[in-house]
Nucleic acid binder design. Structure first.
Lengths: 308, 308
DNA sequence: CCATTAACTCGTTCAAATCGTTCTTACGGC
DNA sequence: GCCGTAAGAACGATTTGAACGAGTTAATGG
């Protein structure tokens, strides 16, 4: 539990407060100069607004708060938020206490700070859910808390996704989880990571039978198909199904990418795929490289077509 | 570096809203002053309108929307598109062909036209998914298409949810699906419906063991707990678990609401609950009535406290 | 610890937007 | 016709927000 002290004397810049309450920086500065908001000044003459002052102003003026997390977080929006240390722990805490605003603040602060989604997912989101899983094992967290955390995170992921630039429709990637695997978060994160490197990635959904994946591959001929494997019910069936998928993919020249904690190295030796990704960063790298190659290939084929 | 779009409840000026709905700025100002549109004011006295307020006004007054993008909505301005007839079929088609934009337009058209979310869900979304289920039975649709449709719809639901007016945190409702039931859409729709009638409704998640629901009820003491039952693995276990949940709920004075296609009347006779909802419209009605009673009760208790 | 550098903030100016108000126009009922 | 009501245009006074060069802060890398 982070100490509550200094939550009230935390200082914000006019720009931050402006963003928090949905006004322009100019107006904020004017209101400060008019005395509507009391400010502290730095040695160099910059205005600094204590959080409690900002909150008082909001209450007195009945002003709206557009980005509440800026005013409610104790230590964030500094460049420090960029530092990974402690962020995963804070996210864990926020998820377990059902504090969606704080979760949002943590994820979006990193995103806005220019952190790649793959890093956010690997170092913060995945770490937080590992921690929640551990707590559950030691009976320090309830199943419903874990599920509820997934709900919160899924909403955040969808919001993040909606902020991404619309993908280039020329490069289609499809993804799925296998039958019996209900973990939607890893697949969704993979989708977002691939979209961040300009793939038109679409997660088909969770718990999809291999034969239906085969149909999807045959119908859409994606350049890439990713399989997120968090849980394997029947190992033999998995391997057999995977081979059928592999066969279909080789016909459509679809690259198969696999990942997920259920894929032990023992199992992996019995599969054949284009790439195995331990982390979202790996997936991002692979996605990038493959896009480059695909671009070159499509340029060539365009040239060929032009020549013909 | 990353392109950030507008925040969730952005503030709009009267002029922007006027443009969005094709009215004059003067009229907008009058409507604000009459209280038809709630506004917040800047320190300098300028009116600012939250997006969700603008949406609420449009929906309640059944006002036309000329430029939906200002309200961060994609919609056709075609008023004919709002008729229910044929909409479910169009949605089915759009879902199966993976046309997310069309799906979005269909849903948001109805939403902007003032259709209640419960009607949209009952008559269009549920109908579309029934149709998809039928097609699957007759081998006219693949499993992956159904799953992919769920993904699309879930994204739309989350977006819809983000445009609702922020809920009154005083009235908490929790919801879940039982262990083995992976259908997230009905539960999410229930959440949105309850939020539309001012409940602070939160879906804990899918596939939650009864004992964890009991923990959630004991921890949060919600006024209402809803159970969406699309699939029952083990009938005896279900009934036993439900009784445990019932017992916990009666201790915290939590009303239990059940719904879902797996609850045959035969099973229902063996359960005891506050309400069974066949449709989202039923749930909305029940939610409304119960809120009224809760409000009265809390007023009374406030009075009592005052007298004491 | 200090220098470097990128990002942020300062104070100012100015155009555009908004305020409250008044006036004109349009529409429907009696 | 005439009244009441609602919509929209017009207007001077005020507020807001974007832009700018100069100066400050703080993250980074010795």
């Amino acid at each position: 539990m982070p100490p509550l002290r200094e939550s009230t004397d935390k200082l914000l810049s006019p720009k931050q407060v402006a963003k928090a309450i949905g006004a322009s920086e100019s107006s904020l500065k004017r209101w400060c100069d008019q005395g509507l908001i009391k400010t502290v000044k730095t040695a160099g003459g910059h205005r600094r607004i204590p959080v409690h002052e900002a909150l008082r102003f909001v209450r007195e003026q009945n002003h709206a708060v557009v980005e509440p997390h800026i005013l409610s977080m104790t230590a964030t929006t500094d460049r420090k938020a960029r530092r990974i240390e402690g962020v995963a722990e804070r996210l864990t805490e926020a998820l377990l206490s059902n504090n969606e605003l704080t979760c949002r603040a943590i994820v979006f602060d990193m995103f806005l700070a220019g952190e790649s989604v793959s890093r956010i997912f690997d170092d913060v989101v995945a770490a937080a859910f590992r921690a929640i899983g551990d707590k559950w094992e030691f009976h320090e967290a309830e199943v419903y808390q874990e599920r509820c955390s997934c709900q919160i995170m899924l909403r955040l992921l969808h919001e993040l996704r909606s902020h991404q630039v619309p993908p280039n429709p020329s490069c289609v990637a499809l993804g799925a989880t296998i039958e019996g695997d209900q973990y939607v978060l890893p697949g969704t994160m993979a989708e977002i990571v691939l979209r961040s490197v300009d793939w038109d990635a679409r997660l088909l959904g969770t718990s999809i039978p291999f034969d239906s994946m085969v149909k999807a591959v045959e119908t859409h001929s994606p350049e890439l198909f990713w399989l997120s494997v968090s849980f394997i019910e029947d190992e033999a069936a998995f391997i057999a199904g995977f081979h059928r998928l592999s066969a279909a993919a080789s016909k459509t020249k679809t690259a198969i990418v696999v990942g997920g904690r259920a894929l032990t190295s023992e199992i992996r030796t019995r599969l054949s795929y284009s790439a195995f990704c331990d982390t979202m960063r790996h997936l991002e790298e692979f996605g990038k490289t493959m896009r480059r190659q695909t671009d070159i290939a499509s340029q060539k084929s365009r040239k060929t077509r032009k020549n013909a």
